[in-house]
Simulated scan of single mutants.
Amino acid sequence: MTGATPIPETVTIHVPFRLVKRGGRKEMQLPDGGRPDRKADSTLVKALARAFRWKRLLESGEFVTIAELAEREGIAFTYMARVLRLTLLAPDIVEAILDGKQSSDVTLKGLMEPFPLDWRSQMALLS
């Protein structure tokens, strides 16, 4: 680079953000008004896929009880029962999770806790 302006040795850039935990991972959050491109939370997506797969296996009659399916999958019955509750989420919430557009408060850990069964009441999860 001959004849060009010399490059300073130190350049300081200030980028306001904070790190928050989301789905067991750290995510960068920009200040109000700034929105990074969000990716779907792979932990939540995987849990949803499992839940709907397990529901399909139960409904098909391939497995008669959750306990039987849990034993076959090699996981605890209680964990499977909590994950299966994800199939009761409103379709808008499932779509938001798959698109990565749910609020940062929506995590697998949070959804493993009881949530309202009424879809209108669940919509508060998106905000």
Rank of each mutant, 00 (worst) to 15 (best):
T5F: 12
P6G: 06
I7W: 11
P8W: 10
P8H: 12
E9Q: 13
E9I: 13
I13H: 03
V15P: 01
V15E: 15
P16G: 03
F17Q: 12
V20I: 15
V20P: 04
R22T: 00
G23H: 03
R25S: 14
E27A: 09
M28C: 11
L30Y: 09
L30H: 06
D32W: 06
R35M: 14
P36Y: 07
R38T: 11
R38H: 11
R38K: 10
T43A: 13
T43H: 08
L44A: 04
V45Y: 00
A47V: 07
A47Y: 05
R50T: 07
F52V: 12
W54L: 04
K55F: 06
L57Q: 02
L57P: 04
L58N: 00
E59M: 06
G61M: 13
E62L: 14
E62V: 13
A67H: 07
E68Q: 10
E68D: 10
E71G: 00
E71T: 06
Y79M: 05
R82H: 12
R82T: 08
R82Q: 11
L86T: 01
T87D: 05
T87W: 04
D92C: 03
I93G: 02
I93M: 00
V94S: 09
A96R: 04
I97Q: 02
G100E: 03
Q102P: 05
S103W: 08
L108W: 04
E113D: 13
P114S: 10
P116F: 10
Q122Y: 06
Q122I: 08
